[in-house]
Nucleic acid binder design. Structure first.
Lengths: 232, 232
DNA sequence: TCTTTTTCGAACCAAGCGGTTCGATGCACT
DNA sequence: AGTGCATCGAACCGCTTGGTTCGAAAAAGA
């Protein structure tokens, strides 16, 4: 037999431990379906399968194989394929908005702050993992509307709220002149990924954009925004 | 042995039917799998099924039922589920770009022309049919990259080429000051659907935007663009 | 009217699905 | 050493899948 020890799946093992056990000490016996490391292991396998196949084409057997966990065990941790996917969506949207918003904190120059934020956002949003995740979510939006809506509202929408607050701060400070900050926030965040996001989503760019491309796009986008809304 | 004769090119058949259908007179006996009306009938049923279920969850039996055509007949007209879907994609992208670009022709005022175009684009791109079609295409982008890429490049990309030509005309005429017209074209077309497209795609707006919403979004977007790139 | 040929519709195929069950296995605790 | 229990893994369930086949029906051309 090849897989007697836990974490026999090579890919899952390393990252599973990192997330699950912050310290190195093993905790004692866990109730069935309660081991966070195993849970993580399943989620990572499911991620790989869902990302490459989409929700419908992915089978639980595929996930079983990819996660290196028996089918029975998966069903101890998750009641159904749907539930497994829903929990994965939470992971997805957390992946999306991890450490993006630090650029908006502090007292940097307006333009510099927006460019730094835009770069971080643009890089994340066009990365392979995030693009794949979004494709899966969009693909099931018709049949499972609550899932995709939730994904968007807990993810991008929250982000936009932060950006909006940032803009409003600068409006109050007299650096910007904006009537409708909600609309302006949409405009800015679209300008930051212009020409990259859609092409990536539709598979017209095999590779994520280079740092140069991102830099060029974000700079141009922010400048358009500032020329339109900046005090002159 | 399936396909024997004419319409060897899928595109030819798909587009030819619309003309053939307009008259009511039946033409004479047609070779197996060559009746454009039947072909259309199948495509329409397939559209309804794919749009609501996505590619994977849709079954050929569903399409059979929805199209009111026997399974055997479908397989006379289309070799496989994939091929049926590919031909449907052609219909999809033609739906998307039908009579959008007339606003860019003629000698209208720059701003008026952009707003008229933006409204037409925005309405189409956020309509129920087009949103559903895009979801389906995006959903299979990972496994069938050529399909979604084709969809984008024959659809949105071609449209952008026309918009770009329009912008360049106005740059030459001295109405706009743009260095990178490709990038500017991306920015403008994103600004025109800002806040609508993504929310629709992720199912955060159940209904298509109202004419008012579209009007507001497009006007604001065009004005941002003109403030940034217009001669002052 | 009779022939020709497309379409119909139901039966059929092997394969795979999501989900369940259950005895064997082996670790973790006493 | 002994035992309790989470995991394993394979077999199994009923069902649907995409795809094929074929005789009957229907319609068009002569």
């Amino acid at each position: 037999m090849s897989s007697t020890k836990a974490y026999s799946t090579p890919l899952a093992a390393a990252t599973a431990l990192e997330a699950a056990l912050s310290g190195d000490e093993r905790q004692g016996r866990l109730a069935a379906g309660q081991d966070p490391a195993k849970r993580q292991q399943i989620l990572e396998g499911a991620d790989r399968v869902f990302s490459t196949m989409g929700f419908d084409a992915a089978s639980m057997n595929d996930i079983t194989r990819e996660a290196g966990v028996s089918k029975g065990t998966i069903y101890v941790y998750f009641d159904s394929k749907e539930e497994l996917f829903m929990e994965l969506c939470i992971v997805y949207r957390e992946k999306l908005f991890n450490g993006i918003y630090s650029a908006l904190e502090g007292d940097h120059d307006l333009r510099e702050a927006l460019i730094a934020f835009g770069k971080a956002l643009s890089l994340k949003v066009t990365s392979d993992v995030v693009i794949r995740a979004q494709r899966v979510v969009i693909g099931v939006a018709e049949r499972m509307p609550s899932m995709s809506r939730n994904f968007y509202e807990q993810g991008p929408k929250k982000g936009q709220a932060m950006l909006r607050a940032f803009l409003e701060k600068h409006v109050a400070a007299g650096n910007l002149e904006i009537e409708d900050t909600e609309l302006a926030t949409y405009q800015l965040s679209d300008l930051m990924v212009t020409g990259l996001f859609k092409r990536r989503l539709f598979g017209c760019m095999d590779e994520p954009p280079t740092a140069e491309q991102v830099n060029r796009t974000v700079t141009a986008g922010v400048d358009v925004f500032l020329r339109a809304y900046g005090k002159r």
